[in-house]
Computed example of a mutant assay.
Amino acid sequence: MLNLSRLQLLHELSVLGTISAVARSLELTRPAVSQQLSLLEKEVGFVLFERSGRGVRWTSAGERLLAGIGGILQAVNEVEADLARTAQTVSGELRIAAFGSAAATIIPQAMTRLAKQHPQLEIFFNEMEPGDGLKATAAKQVDIAIVDDLTGTENVALQLDFEPLYIDPFKAVVSADHRLASTGRRSVELWELAQETWALNQSAVGYQTFIVHACHAEGYSPKIMSSCRNIAATLEFVRTGSYVTVLPGLATHNIQVDPDFRCLDLRPLTQRRLFTAFAKGSKARPVIGSALEAFQQACSLFVNR
Results as ranks from 00 to 15, higher is better:
residue 81 A to F: 07
residue 182 S to Q: 10
residue 108 P to Y: 08
residue 196 E to D: 15
residue 179 R to W: 05
residue 198 W to Q: 02
residue 127 E to Y: 03
residue 127 E to L: 07
residue 130 P to L: 11
residue 108 P to K: 11
residue 83 L to E: 09
residue 125 F to L: 02
residue 78 E to N: 02
residue 195 Q to S: 15
residue 168 D to T: 07
residue 147 V to Y: 05
residue 105 T to A: 10
residue 114 L to C: 04
residue 121 L to E: 09
residue 124 F to P: 00
residue 172 A to L: 02
residue 138 A to R: 01
residue 187 S to C: 03
residue 187 S to V: 08
residue 116 K to D: 14
residue 173 V to G: 01
residue 105 T to Q: 09
residue 99 F to Q: 05
residue 123 I to C: 05
residue 170 F to E: 04
residue 167 I to H: 10
residue 86 T to A: 14
residue 193 L to C: 02
residue 195 Q to P: 00
residue 87 A to Y: 15
residue 155 N to M: 13
residue 120 Q to T: 13
residue 97 A to N: 06
residue 92 G to D: 03
residue 149 D to M: 08
residue 200 L to S: 08
residue 178 H to Q: 05
residue 156 V to I: 13
residue 117 Q to E: 15
residue 128 M to Y: 14
residue 113 R to T: 14
residue 167 I to A: 07
residue 166 Y to M: 05
residue 180 L to N: 02
residue 126 N to C: 06
residue 103 A to R: 03
residue 84 A to V: 11
residue 116 K to A: 13
residue 146 I to V: 13
residue 130 P to I: 15
residue 159 Q to R: 12
residue 188 V to D: 01
residue 197 T to G: 02
residue 91 S to R: 05
residue 123 I to Y: 07
residue 134 L to K: 03
residue 167 I to G: 06
residue 94 L to Y: 09
residue 166 Y to F: 15
residue 175 S to P: 00
residue 127 E to S: 04
residue 193 L to R: 00
residue 118 H to T: 11
residue 188 V to Y: 04
residue 110 A to S: 07
residue 121 L to P: 00
residue 196 E to I: 03
residue 119 P to L: 10
residue 131 G to W: 12
residue 197 T to K: 12
residue 189 E to C: 07
residue 134 L to V: 12
residue 127 E to T: 08
residue 145 A to K: 01
residue 167 I to Y: 11
residue 186 R to H: 09
residue 160 L to I: 13
residue 198 W to C: 01
residue 96 I to Q: 01
residue 135 K to R: 15
residue 169 P to S: 08
residue 131 G to C: 08
residue 116 K to I: 14
residue 137 T to F: 08
residue 167 I to V: 12
residue 94 L to M: 09
residue 117 Q to H: 08
residue 84 A to S: 13
residue 185 R to D: 11
residue 103 A to F: 07
residue 153 T to S: 11
residue 200 L to D: 07
residue 131 G to E: 12
residue 194 A to N: 10
residue 81 A to N: 05
residue 94 L to V: 15
residue 120 Q to Y: 11
residue 163 E to V: 15
residue 199 A to N: 03
residue 198 W to H: 09
residue 119 P to K: 02
residue 175 S to H: 07
residue 114 L to Q: 05
residue 97 A to Y: 06
residue 182 S to N: 08
residue 198 W to D: 02
residue 192 E to P: 00
residue 146 I to F: 11
residue 163 E to R: 12
residue 150 L to Q: 14
residue 84 A to L: 12
residue 136 A to D: 01
residue 154 E to R: 04
residue 103 A to I: 04
residue 121 L to M: 05
residue 144 I to L: 15
residue 125 F to N: 00
residue 87 A to K: 11
residue 178 H to Y: 03
residue 170 F to V: 06
residue 107 I to P: 00
